[in-house]
Write a protein that binds this DNA or RNA. Sequence first.
DNA 1: TTTAGCACTCATAGTATCCAAGTGCTAAGA
DNA 2: TCTTAGCACTTGGATACTATGAGTGCTAAA
Lengths: 338, 338
Amino acid sequence: MILKAIVRDYTSSGVPVGSKALATQLPLHVSSATVRNEMAALEELGLITKTHSSSGRIPSVKGYRYYVDHLVQPDPIKANDIDLIKSSLDGQFVKIDEIIETSAKILSNLTSYTAFTLKPELKESRLSGFRLVPLGKRQVMAVLVTDNGDVESQTFNIAPNISGDQLEAVVRLINDQLVGQPLNSVLQALQTEIPLQVGQYLQRPDGFLKIFGDVLTKAAQERFYVGGRLNLLNFSDSSDVDELKSLYTLMDRTDDMASVLGQPSDHIQVKIGSEITNDILKDYSLITATYEVGDHGKGVIALLGPTRMPYSRMIGLVGAFRQELAQRLIDYYRYFDQ
Amino acid sequence: MILKAIVRDYTSSGVPVGSKALATQLPLHVSSATVRNEMAALEELGLITKTHSSSGRIPSVKGYRYYVDHLVQPDPIKANDIDLIKSSLDGQFVKIDEIIETSAKILSNLTSYTAFTLKPELKESRLSGFRLVPLGKRQVMAVLVTDNGDVESQTFNIAPNISGDQLEAVVRLINDQLVGQPLNSVLQALQTEIPLQVGQYLQRPDGFLKIFGDVLTKAAQERFYVGGRLNLLNFSDSSDVDELKSLYTLMDRTDDMASVLGQPSDHIQVKIGSEITNDILKDYSLITATYEVGDHGKGVIALLGPTRMPYSRMIGLVGAFRQELAQRLIDYYRYFDQ
DNA sequence: TTTAGCACTCATAGTATCCAAGTGCTAAGA
DNA sequence: TCTTAGCACTTGGATACTATGAGTGCTAAA
């Protein structure tokens, strides 16, 4: 009960909490001295610490962990918030990506923290088609489609001496040999056999290979969105410029962030401070949740905030949001899947 | 001479400069008392100020202005720097936009400030084609091309009850009526007659109209790139979080930034502190330069830094960079234009 | 087991003091 | 008339000292 009160107090006020204040708040009627004894015990257990020898107590990482694992109960979500979520997700979206991207924004607005969303994805998507669409005299658009429904495109200029036939031959080559293969394999093939084969049709295959590689890697990458980047300035130290920089740099690296978010799991996960695998985030906490979209795979939403975040509220919010988002996406697919 | 020395000193050290230090630095042999008398005169003229009543002097906005207008001579660019520029611009680019984007990065790296680049653009580009490329069962990609060579695309899903014929009819409609018109007019038509006409072919035209509007506005927007966003943290106060936030928000608004950069002009422009039209930037300085790419229009590069930036070096750099970039782009067009 | 009492600790804010860097002004010198 | 030495004065910043108050640990009594 005391640990719970300390966490609650500290996360809402940000000030180390002392025995006297605590005694008056507790549902039991006990004196501050009693509280002090109990606090000494909690400190012994490593659940709370002091900032200096005569200060009030703050929860340690271990303390937060115990609180999150055993004591916290998610706040019921406010009617206001649920309305906001519903109405924000209710827009006229024409692409899944838009929904996912907006989700990150909503979640960050709701919490004043920074939010991440990962698009739901089948384990391994396969190449389902590649085309070159001629646009102007020299302009061509390369379009790559996966069996997942993801589309990547890029325009480029071709050298004047390349004929339409040559391009068609290359497209046919790619489609014949690679459609149906997982993107990873295609990427690998790009390093090995493809250049040789393409070389039969094009004099200087470099340009084409670069384009193809670009759209391919874009398609193979996880779709990762960040909302409320700037909120980081609120809750981070923000005096240490270098730290801020590495944080922002980290957030732009899709791969690193994907590994930080970790494996999908069914329940809401909370990683606190040093529990996060990446050192740059050791002073923050991360709440992640997986959302399932029927047979369209799983996605992840996550929330990054200070270690001293009001976990009960945030866990409640993330939980509610994941449900709303999943529902919204299921509806989306139901409408468009034949 | 004294003003020049003060600006030079202060921009390189960041510390208000006093009469004694100044006396030893000046090419003339004069005592500090003489310098003090001159400084009093300069202060009278409003060219320099004190931070407090017994501090050294710093240049005022008016002082910087005078310096930039009459005293500064651009530093000759270092061999190192020119090599870096050349080699960075030398990559295998397949799109103009890539070159422009990289330019912002190079310039920001070179200066440790924040750089902006605006793609060269003809006065008003016109719609030269619109298509819908079917990708899968329900997926369609909308592609819009301008006579400028700009391409915008977006994928979306169509409702199951729409036939290929309907889409073709819509595409034909758009192309027949609107090709050759300036994008602005097309945007306007989108508000007025187009919805009615499209309504004849589609039951629920909203989705299509949104897509068309989206790609259209994207194409009509100026192409604007920012490099070294994070450098802002170095040279801005960075303790005032709200200020930082509005600064970053500003940088994401293409329109506002375009108006901040101002009208293209032939020579390098320097705007100092409160001279910048936007209040958010009142403690910064902005160096802008226009680069011309033959008959492919004009673009802009710009550099944002603290008011106390070493103008001579920066003006030199921006000048050299603009030349290199223009040359690079001219080469690019020469290679691909027929 | 709980509690009152008390000595002790430490961060924070406020105050005084010193120092260095710089200024303005005056009066003498070139 | 311009330059310069000299000097009193101003100011921010560093350093030291001193309350003050919130909080602790421990002891002894209830």
